[in-house]
């Protein structure tokens, strides 16, 4: 087979950094089909996904830089209302660390978040809940992790809301997260829940995850150490993205 220079450069790069991504552990994730979540019935592939070791197509990923972000992108309290007017509802700080499966920080990860307002209403054409819109709340924000993998944004506590599934299903309060790591193999969309919410364990979307501990890792604890006194409560949500196998080079360095 012909080897071209770009491949040599890529291999050299990999030798110094990391090998293929660890296979995704299906047990950490919801099943594609979870019949109590009605929409999954016709939208879940029936065949087992095909696996192969990651290649440059999965090990590379979109490159985003800090200049993408505007000054209010991580402040959902103020990024929508006119003249800097604040959104209605309990003010909270959501923060945490993005790491890989080896505990190494993922720097420069782009997090996009969206949520309902404090009354449980989304600003979306398809939304039909009777709770009112807040003229000062869009429900959309984004932030990038720093060199230690840390992120933080401000918002309001989202409300629970009813949804058409069973006869009387309510989503627990949650914030949706879209996460880009370094490689497209790490691409993840998830939801963060709030400590103590009795709706979490009744939710068919949460229930699609079999592993109770995997659900518990989606529940952000109240974090009194990081509140803003007389201003905002804080919740901490750490995120783990897939890791790349250690290379021989690294093993030698660490092990011998």
């Amino acid at each position: 087979m012909i080897r071209d220079q770009s491949k040599d450069a890529q291999m050299q790069d990999d030798d110094q950094n990391a090998g293929p991504y660890l296979p995704r552990n299906a047990a950490s994730h919801p099943a594609a089909l979870h019949p109590p979540y009605r929409s999954s019935r016709l939208r879940s592939p029936q065949a087992e996904p095909i696996t192969f070791p990651s290649t440059p197509s999965e090990e590379s990923g979109p490159v985003f830089t800090g200049d993408l972000l505007g000054p209010l992108d991580n402040d959902l309290l103020h990024n929508f209302g006119p003249d800097g007017q604040s959104a209605i509802g309990p003010r909270i700080i959501v923060h945490g660390r993005v790491q890989d499966q080896f505990g190494r920080p993922v720097a420069g990860a782009l997090l996009e978040v969206w949520q309902a307002n404090a009354g449980g209403r989304y600003r979306h054409a398809k939304e039909g809940y009777i709770a009112p819109l807040d003229p000062n709340f869009g429900g959309c924000g984004r932030v990038m992790t720093d060199t230690e993998g840390r992120y933080s944004f401000r918002t309001v506590m989202p409300g629970a809301y009813p949804w058409p599934n069973g006869p009387n299903d309510w989503r627990p309060a949650h914030i949706h997260f879209s996460v880009f790591g370094a490689g497209f193999a790490q691409r993840l969309i998830t939801q963060m829940y709030f400590e103590g919410d009795p709706l979490i364990w009744r939710c068919p979307i949460v229930g699609a995850i079999d592993d109770k501990r995997a659900v518990e890792r989606l529940i952000a604890p109240l974090d009194m150490d990081n509140t803003a006194p007389m201003d905002a409560l804080a919740y901490r949500f750490d995120i783990t993205l897939r890791g790349r196998e250690q290379t021989l080079f690294e093993n030698r360095m660490e092990g011998l």
Binding site: L22, W114, C140, L188, Q191, L241
Partner: peptide, 29 residues
């Protein structure tokens, strides 16, 4: 590896708000 990957959850019907806000009518962000 020491840490399990964070679980996925559905993007839901309102994914456009966070991922394509201009498409969703949230212009100016």
């Amino acid at each position: 590896s020491k840490h399990p990957e964070t679980a996925s959850q559905t993007a839901g019907p309102y994914v456009h708000i966070g991922c394509t806000p201009n498409f969703a009518g949230l212009t100016g962000l």
